[in-house]
């Protein structure tokens, strides 16, 4: 059974939410996952906090900092996720930087992911070449999809290469920026969404970075299969707490 592929084969646009594990409170991880599923989110990215998140803007940096202060660790995340598959069915993906995974041991990490029911990984600073050469066999052994990023600057040739290595979806970074931009999408960005969709890749594309509301979600999913919201959700947790997750999801994708 491959939960990611099943979800992607549904005949609808998908909504994914990113949040940082251990934020705002250390033990919030599982309850947030359950709430997101209950409110119709299609899949979830669980952020593994890191001291030096290079590709992230201030919102996710701060949530990582708080999570680390809360005592969040890789080991603790796996403890929290133990048993999650008895309650949650949607795909769960861990998004984290490579160093904590390397320290945990790549094979051990993958093994634990498989054991708790994680479906895939997004590791922004593990380039596709290194993955292919050194780690792909391990990921495949444990049935984990590794998701790669492309950006508006990625060449067509490289996109085709990344598509050939990917199993699941391609993470399409909307604009040249770190996470958390709220500037909205220009015509140029929307043309890029179209250009990629016209490449007819093997893997569907999910757009991330810079999606914060119904409008940007709509624009992102005009051509792509779905979109991921991160910083906007963290901000919501920060201002409204965990109470109104249903309201947040409904504002992005009204039923």
């Amino acid at each position: 059974m491959n939960r990611i592929k099943n979800t992607l084969s549904q005949d609808k646009k998908l909504l994914s939410i990113y949040f940082t594990a251990g934020y705002p409170e250390p033990e919030d991880t599982v309850s947030i996952i359950k709430d997101l599923e209950k409110n119709g989110v299609d899949f979830i990215e669980i952020g593994l906090p890191f001291s030096d998140p290079l590709a992230d803007g201030p919102t996710i940096q701060e949530s990582s900092g708080v999570a680390l202060k809360n005592g969040m660790t890789t080991k603790k995340l796996f403890q929290q996720l133990d048993g999650i598959r008895e309650e949650v069915e949607i795909p769960l993906i861990i998004m984290g930087y490579f160093n904590p995974i390397l320290q945990f041991g790549v094979e051990e990490f993958c093994k634990r992911c498989a054991a708790v029911g994680i479906d895939g990984l997004i590791i922004p600073d593990l380039p596709v070449e290194e993955y292919n050469e050194k780690y792909r066999v391990i990921f495949e052994k444990y049935g984990l999809s590794n998701i790669f990023l492309i950006t508006p600057q990625t060449s067509e040739e490289r996109i085709r290469f990344i598509d050939s290595v990917s199993e699941g979806f391609i993470y399409m970074v909307s604009t040249a920026s770190v996470t958390g931009s709220t500037k909205g999408f220009t015509q140029e960005t929307r043309d890029y969404f179209r250009r990629i969709s016209e490449m007819k890749l093997r893997n569907p594309q999910i757009v991330g970075f810079g999606i914060s509301d119904e409008e940007t979600y709509g624009q992102a999913t005009e051509f792509a299969k779905g979109a991921i919201i991160g910083s906007a959700f963290i901000k919501h947790l920060n201002s409204s707490g965990k109470q109104d997750i249903s309201g947040f999801v409904k504002r992005i994708r009204p039923v």
């Binding site: 593990l126 380039p127 990023l149 492309i150 950006t151 970074v173």
Partner: peptide
Amino acid sequence: GGAYIPEMLYP
């Protein structure tokens, strides 16, 4: 060594 960079920096 190597280049462990996010795709955004690749170009």
